[in-house]
Design a protein around this nucleic acid. Structure first.
Lengths: 132, 132
DNA sequence: TCAATTTAGGTATTTAAATGCTCAAATGTA
DNA sequence: TACATTTGAGCATTTAAATACCTAAATTGA
């Protein structure tokens, strides 16, 4: 079975994690986020650190520490978070990014760029606030 | 820059390669397919061998050998070729294939499965014959 | 101050895809 | 028949991304 599209685990942790954090007034630590997202604490830590650096979260070390929201959930959409982790979404005509093409007309007929745009628009339409 | 969707080089070689072969009455060899698709001859050889085994092509060794169509281009659609290389396309509700989900409602709202279905339908709609 | 907790950051490992290499087998041509 | 050409097949190497691990630094509370 092959997958045409897959969300990286990092992007999934970022999106699910920030919602989980926003749902908790007192913040959440790595262990709890890892448990609820069914992922490794190592990976969660790495991803959350990037969201801290990007200004979406603050972190608190030490006992009863964890991650807290820094920005308003109303002002964070999924695309912000996704692109913080994955980099800007690229919408390219050629799915192979080839300079050389054997045909006059791309055999993919922009289907892949349409799909990508559809995905991007969806991410942009969803805010963290909608999931509280 | 991140890519949401990308066609593997193997799938691209298979789709472009079989059209190139179908366009030539006398067949095409690995070197020529590699040149026209701007890929390595090793990779082309590997992919074409799989299309031979799957019954789409025949191969001819020796001088002036190469690959020839075996099936009628009218009866080969892109999905056949794609799935020969990548395996059956999987359309799953959860983009992470998780058993455990922290939320009641998937934050991806079936957007990823809709995209996948759109892609699959496109592949199924295109035959090799349409590109001759 | 000491011990426990928790994030921070650097490094290592894993994985899958792509690529490269070598030799064998088949075939056409001189 | 001998040679050059071309695919077949297996294995090794390379590469990049993702994931995992390990130690340091910060913080809290007893």
């Amino acid at each position: 079975m092959s997958k045409v599209f897959s969300l990286s685990e990092a992007a999934s942790i970022a999106l699910h994690g920030i919602i989980l954090i926003a749902q908790e007034k007192k913040g959440l630590n790595v262990i709890k986020i890892a448990e609820r997202t069914d992922t490794s604490k190592h990976h969660v830590a790495k991803v959350m650190q990037r969201l801290v650096k990007a200004g979406y979260l603050t972190s608190q070390r030490g006992p009863s520490g964890g991650f807290l929201m820094r920005k308003n959930p109303k002002e964070i959409n999924f695309l912000d978070i996704y692109e913080t982790i994955e980099g800007p979404i690229e919408i390219s005509e050629c799915p192979m990014d080839k300079q050389v093409c054997p045909f006059n007309k791309c055999i993919m007929n922009n289907v892949t760029s349409k799909m990508t745009l559809e995905f991007k628009n969806y991410l942009e339409s969803q805010t963290v606030e909608q999931y509280l």
